[in-house]
C-alpha cells in the first residue's frame, strides 16, 4: 500500500483528520527546507505538500508568489526539489510527500524522467495546478507506471460531470479548493464547503482534503469537521516570510502545532 493510503487509513481508524501543511521548497533557503519538513512532521503533519517554485505562479496569491521568487533566487529547481525529498527520506520513510506546482518545469524535464525520479527519491503524489484531467493523459500514464499518485483539484465551480471524470483519474486524495480565488485569499465560506462535500462524496471515494484560505486554528478546526484533511499553505509561508532564518523552524513548528491541536480537539 502507498504511503498516502496507509496514512489516511490510519487516521480513519483513529477518527482523526489529516493536517497537510504546504511549504515552498527552497524558501527561505535551500538548507532550511529539509529541517522544516522534519519539524512539520514532528509537530503533527500527516502529509507534506512541497511546492516546486515556478516563475509564473498564476493560481497563487502574493504570499506564495513571493516564496516562489525567493526560492528561485536561491537557485531552486525541480531537480533540486527531488534531491531534497531524497534527503528527507534518509530519516523519514513514512510521511507522504506530495509535490505541488505548475506543469512546465516537469514538461522541461520530461514526464518519464520525472516520474522515475519521483519513485527513486520517495515522492508519493504530484499535483500540477495547471494540468486539468483533459490535459493530463501523458502525465497520468507516466505517474501511474511508477506508482506516483496524481492529485487533482476540484473547485466550487466544478460540475458533477467533471467530478466524475476526476474520480476516475485521481489517486491518493483529492484536493478541494475551498474558494474561488488564488491561494491566500481570505473569503472562505464554510456553508458552501459543507454543501459541496456531499456532492463530491457521491463520486469520490478517496479522502478529500480542503485548502485555500485556511488562515488560523479556528478555521482549520471548522473545516476539518467537514472533510478528511486540511491543507494550510499561505499562512505557513507567511510565517516563514516574517521569521528570521534562525527562528524560522521553531516559529513554523509552533504555528503548525497550534493547528494540530485545534484539529484534534
Amino acid at each position: 500500500m502507498s504511503r498516502i493510503d496507509t496514512t489516511f487509513g490510519k487516521l480513519k481508524q483513529q477518527q482523526r483528520k489529516a493536517l497537510i501543511p504546504f511549504v515552498t521548497a527552497g524558501d527561505p533557503s535551500q538548507l532550511l527546507t529539509v529541517p522544516l519538513m522534519h519539524e512539520l512532521v514532528k509537530v503533527g503533519a500527516d502529509v507534506i505538500e512541497l511546492g516546486v517554485p515556478f516563475s509564473d505562479p498564476m493560481a497563487d496569491g502574493p504570499v506564495i508568489q513571493r516564496a516562489s521568487e525567493r526560492a528561485l533566487k536561491n537557485g531552486m529547481s525541480l531537480r533540486g526539489v527531488l534531491g531534497m525529498v531524497a534527503e528527507f527520506r534518509k530519516q523519514d520513510t513514512t510521511t507522504p510527500v506530495v509535490l505541488m506546482g505548475y506543469g512546465n518545469p516537469i514538461e522541461a524535464m520530461g514526464w518519464e524522467t520525472f516520474a522515475q525520479r519521483c519513485a527513486e527519491v520517495g515522492v508519493d503524489g504530484v499535483l500540477t495546478v495547471d494540468f486539468p484531467p483533459e490535459e493530463s493523459h501523458e502525465a497520468f500514464e507516466h505517474l501511474q507506471r511508477h506508482n506516483i499518485a496524481p492529485i487533482f483539484l476540484l473547485a466550487p465551480t466544478t460540475n458533477e460531470a467533471r467530478i466524475e471524470q476526476v474520480a476516475k483519474l485521481a489517486r491518493g486524495y483529492v484536493y478541494y479548493v475551498s474558494l474561488k480565488g488564488v491561494t491566500g485569499a481570505g473569503n472562505l465560506d464554510l456553508s458552501a464547503i459543507e454543501e459541496k462535500i456531499p456532492q463530491l462524496r457521491k463520486h469520490i471515494h478517496l479522502p478529500i482534503g480542503v485548502g485555500f484560505g485556511i488562515r488560523d486554528a479556528a478555521t482549520a478546526r471548522a473545516v476539518s469537521k467537514l472533510c478528511d484533511g486540511v491543507v494550510v499553505g499561505s499562512r505557513i509561508v507567511q510565517e516563514i516570510e516574517n521569521s528570521d532564518e534562525k527562528n524560522v523552524v521553531a516559529n513554523v513548528g509552533k504555528l503548525v502545532k497550534e493547528l494540530r491541536i485545534a484539529i484534534d480537539q
Binding site: 495547471d130 494540468f131 486539468p132 483533459e134 483539484l153 473547485a155 465551480t157 466544478t158 467533471r162
Partner: peptide, 12 residues
C-alpha cells in the same frame, strides 16, 4: 494549444 488552466477556471 489545449486548456492548461487551474480547475476553478475550467468551467468558465
Amino acid at each position: 494549444g489545449g486548456i492548461y488552466m487551474a480547475e476553478t477556471l475550467i468551467p468558465a
